[in-house]
Every structure is written in structure tokens, then in C-alpha cells.
């Protein structure tokens, strides 16, 4: 296998190097890629969409259709992880000994199969291998998480004016929740943000994007033509495009946030929703 691999690699590499002979040199301002479409985007974006960040404008407006499917790719990855890994409730809830912890005293209670304690603030359900979360990590994360989330919201909201947008902000937001799950344990994290909520948020995020596009369709314009929203938002068509971009960015942010957590939850626990693989 190693020799075959080497041969394939050498042949492919030779082909690529051969082709690179006809490429423009690096950072050549006169290359076709820099002179054909990009001047249009650079010079017209501000007039046509009133968004100073050209990447955001191209991402969410000129090529907004790509981005919608990009969000769908993330969404489908989340669904695939859930579909493949999640152990169905029937298999999981077979008679097993349950462990609870009395939060105030820290006493652990072991219950024989079939018994359970109704959900209350005094008791939390824990895994058999549960150990108390480390104090330093818990405190450190507790200090950091609010700032991380604030920053994430800033990144989403300022996608028009600075590097950022829905994907980046959504990932940071998701990372903050994952940090919480790491610093405490998965059960606590899932209790704060249930599986059902995450699953629905994923779909809601993508629906905000696709729904904005479909709204334009209903307003007698082409799909994703945000200028159709001008009448609804009471602004001129160009500002409407800017607002439309913000709407879809929020949708992207929600979808990415939820999917990141969903993928983490499923992969880190192999679908058992308990601690550890």
C-alpha cells in the first residue's frame, strides 16, 4: 500500500507542479482572478448593499445561495452525528442503578433499578464514575464564559463592519457552551441546554436563513433577493439588503452554535450522553 500511495502521490504532485507553470505569480495584481470579478465586487458592494465588509456582502448576498447550503452542510453533519451515534432511549434506559447526589451536602445516593427521584433542585443525577468538577477549572471557566459569549455576539453583530459574521460568532458561542460542558460535566451541560432544544435550534437557525429567502419569494422577487424586504422593513432596497444580510447572519449563528454543541455532545460521549467515551 505504501508503494502504491507513493506512486499516486508522485504522479499527482508532478501533474500539479506541471500545471503551476502556467499560473500567474503570487500576489500578481494583473492575474485573471484579480481583474475579472473582484473589481466589480470591490467597487460596487457599497453602492449595492451598503455593507463595507465585502466578504460579508459577497458571502451573504451575491453568493448567499452557497452560504445557505453551507449552513445546511453543518446542519446535516449534526444530524448525521446524532443519527449514527445516539443510543436510542429504549436501549439506554434499561434497568440500571441510578446515582444521585444531594447538592447541599454532597452525599451520593445509589438507587436500585427501577427507582428514581423526581427532578428537583436538591438532587442531581450523576454517573457512576462521577467526580466533583475541579474547582480551579470551574472558577476559571465561570469567569471567562460570559466574556466569550459577549465577544461572540459582538462578532455576529459586527459582521458588516469588521471581520466576523454568523459562522465565526456561532462557533465562538458554541465553544463557550462546550467549555462549560468540559469544566463541569456533560450531564450538567445537557440539563442546562437540553438535547431537544439543541436539535430544534439547529433547524430553526437554518430555517431563518431559508425562510428569509422564501419571504423574498413570497414578496414576488427571486429567492434570496433581499431588496424585496424593503416594503416590510420600511427602508430603501439597498438598506434592505444590508438588513437581510444581518437576518441571515443571525440564522447562521444560531445554527452553527447549536450544531457545534450537538456534534460535541454526541461525539464526546459516543451517544450515551454521559461523561467520557
Amino acid at each position: 500500500m505504501k508503494i502504491i500511495g507513493l506512486i499516486i502521490v508522485v504522479v499527482t504532485g508532478a501533474l500539479l507542479i506541471y500545471a503551476a507553470a502556467d499560473f500567474p505569480a503570487w500576489s500578481d495584481p494583473a492575474s485573471p482572478a484579480s481583474t475579472y470579478l473582484s473589481p466589480y465586487f470591490i467597487e460596487k458592494t457599497m453602492e449595492e448593499t451598503s455593507v463595507p465588509n465585502i466578504v460579508t456582502a459577497v458571502l451573504a448576498d451575491y453568493r448567499g445561495f452557497d452560504t445557505m447550503f453551507e449552513t445546511t452542510v453543518i446542519f446535516s453533519a449534526g444530524v448525521v452525528c446524532f443519527f449514527l451515534l445516539r443510543i436510542s432511549r429504549r436501549e439506554e434506559e434499561e434497568p440500571e442503578t441510578r446515582y444521585y447526589r444531594h447538592v447541599l451536602t454532597g452525599v451520593t445516593i445509589q438507587l436500585k433499578e427501577g427507582y428514581k427521584i423526581p427532578p428537583s433542585a436538591d438532587f442531581e443525577r450523576i454517573d457512576a464514575v462521577w467526580t466533583p468538577p475541579d474547582l480551579i477549572i470551574k472558577t476559571g471557566c465561570r469567569i471567562l464564559i460570559p466574556f466569550i459569549q459577549l465577544f461572540a455576539l459582538y462578532v455576529i453583530a459586527h459582521g458588516h463592519h469588521s471581520p466576523g459574521g454568523g459562522f465565526q460568532g456561532g462557533v465562538i458561542l458554541g465553544a463557550s457552551v462546550i467549555l462549560f460542558a468540559i469544566s463541569h460535566d456533560l450531564r450538567t451541560a445537557v440539563r442546562r441546554m437540553s438535547e431537544k432544544l439543541i436539535g430544534i435550534l439547529c433547524a430553526v437557525g437554518v430555517s431563518i436563513y431559508a425562510g428569509t429567502g422564501a419571504l423574498c419569494l413570497l414578496l414576488k422577487q427571486n429567492f434570496l433577493d433581499y431588496s424585496a424586504l424593503a416594503g416590510v422593513l420600511h427602508v430603501d432596497p439597498i438598506t434592505a439588503r444590508s438588513h437581510g444580510i444581518l437576518m441571515v447572519e443571525i440564522g447562521v449563528g444560531i445554527a452553527v452554535l447549536a450544531t457545534m454543541i450537538w456534534i460535541y455532545n454526541n461525539i464526546s460521549s459516543a451517544g450515551r450522553y454521559r461523561q467520557g467515551l
Partner: peptide, 20 residues
């Protein structure tokens, strides 16, 4: 400030995971 908080906490977390 962020690095001052995050970096030692992260290292501690990794060590903690190793011990566990």
C-alpha cells in the same frame, strides 16, 4: 489578562484530566 486567566487554567485542566 485573558491569557493570564486561560493558560494556567487550561494547563491545570489537562493535568487534571491526566490524573483522572
Amino acid at each position: 489578562v485573558f491569557i493570564f486567566l486561560a493558560s494556567p487554567t487550561a494547563t491545570h485542566g489537562i493535568v487534571d484530566a491526566g490524573v483522572r
